[in-house]
Amino acid sequence: MSDDSQRPIVVKKIKKGGHGHHGGAWKIAYADFVTAMMAFFLLMWLLGSVSKGNLKGISDFFNNPLKVANAGGSGSGDSNSVIQGGGNDITKQAGQVKKGDPPVQTEAAQDKKRLSELKQKFEALMNDKIRDNSKLGQYKEQIKLDMVAEGLRIQIVDEQNRPMFKSGSSELENHAHAVLQEIAQLLNEVPNAVSLAGHTDGTQFAGGAAGFTNWELSSERANSLRRELILGGFVPGKVLRVNGFGDVIPLDKNNVYNPINRRISIVVLNKEAESDIRKLAGQTEGLSVTGPADGFVNPIQQPTQ
């Protein structure tokens, strides 16, 4: 029998080493995370720069793509794409509006706005004069304002008991002087040139020098209007045209003898009409309407007496 005490004792020591190598898997996961975040922020930026209409189109497409594709309309694209803004050229979007400074008004638009404001101011002035019981206020029913192709037209028509001129004459009645001079002050508030015209009714002129007709009478009345406006302070150089139309353009075509056919008119010209008149007269270069240019004499300003 062997002695157990003589057996050798074996001691096993387990040496613990460091952590094992995990590889580069974590780097791939981190890169995927960063890429996803970049894509998310890029999506947020794109959505923030898209108009509400386009957002609705995209939303409609994802809610019901077949309906949008078949029915068309907002969200159906500008070409062959079902998403608005798609197609060959995504810059050509229907209804796209540039964001930025508002468009500068054209000269014609500014001119139209100025004449419209003058019309409103004239109407307001008439109402004030009625309350003050002035001469101009008493003419409310005889003064007609309307916008025509050439600009703002102001017509003063005769009434049976309140004519502007003495019968068969170009001499203004006493009450007409104050009316025209008040109008002159208002016309000076805009830089536009004016065209003046006189009209008669169908009654043929029976007195005066031989050959004197309604043509001569209407022309002289228009020129009397010009002189009275200038006396009221109107800038002479802003008078561009003085016409007499006789009785050929009545307001009341059914009754050419109606007193309203006897009238004088002032047209505050827009820039286009002024340019056309100057071209018809043979002027090729524009002149300021606020006064004659140096060395230029306006024949309209010369006295006709």
Rank of each mutant, 00 (worst) to 15 (best):
S49A: 15
S49R: 14
S49L: 14
V50N: 02
K52P: 02
K52E: 10
G53P: 01
N54M: 04
N54I: 10
N54G: 12
K56T: 01
K56I: 13
I58G: 05
S59F: 15
S59G: 07
S59A: 15
S59D: 10
D60F: 00
D60N: 05
D60R: 02
D60P: 07
F62Q: 04
F62K: 02
N63G: 10
N63A: 12
N63S: 08
N63P: 00
P65W: 09
L66D: 06
V68D: 01
V68R: 02
A69N: 01
N70S: 14
A71P: 06
A71E: 15
A71I: 10
G72V: 06
G72Q: 12
G73R: 08
G73Y: 04
G75C: 05
G75E: 00
G77E: 03
G77W: 01
D78M: 05
D78W: 03
S79R: 15
N80I: 15
N80V: 15
N80F: 15
S81I: 00
I83P: 00
Q84P: 11
G85S: 10
G85M: 12
G86A: 07
G87I: 07
N88K: 09
D89Y: 08
D89I: 06
D89P: 00
D89W: 02
T91K: 11
T91W: 11
T91P: 04
K92E: 11
Q96D: 09
Q96V: 06
Q96L: 06
K98T: 10
K98A: 08
K98P: 08
K99E: 10
G100D: 07
P102R: 10
P103V: 13
P103R: 11
V104R: 03
V104G: 01
V104P: 01
Q105S: 06
Q105Y: 05
Q105H: 10
Q105N: 08
T106L: 00
T106F: 00
T106H: 03
T106C: 00
T106A: 00
E107Y: 06
A108S: 12
A108T: 01
A109I: 09
Q110L: 05
D111N: 13
D111Q: 03
K113C: 00
K113H: 03
K113R: 09
R114Y: 10
R114K: 13
L115S: 06
S116C: 02
K119F: 05
K119E: 15
K119L: 11
K119H: 11
K119D: 13
K121W: 13
K121R: 08
K121S: 15
F122A: 14
E123T: 14
A124T: 14
A124S: 14
M126C: 09
N127P: 01
N127I: 02
D128A: 13
D128N: 13
D128S: 12
K129S: 13
K129A: 14
I130A: 04
I130Y: 03
R131I: 05
K135I: 14
K135N: 10
K135E: 11
K135C: 00
L136P: 02
L136V: 12
G137S: 04
Q138D: 15
Q142W: 00
Q142R: 12
I143E: 09
K144F: 02
K144L: 12
L145W: 10
D146K: 13
D146Q: 02
M147K: 05
M147A: 12
M147L: 13
V148H: 01
A149L: 15
E150K: 02
G151H: 01
G151E: 03
G151W: 00
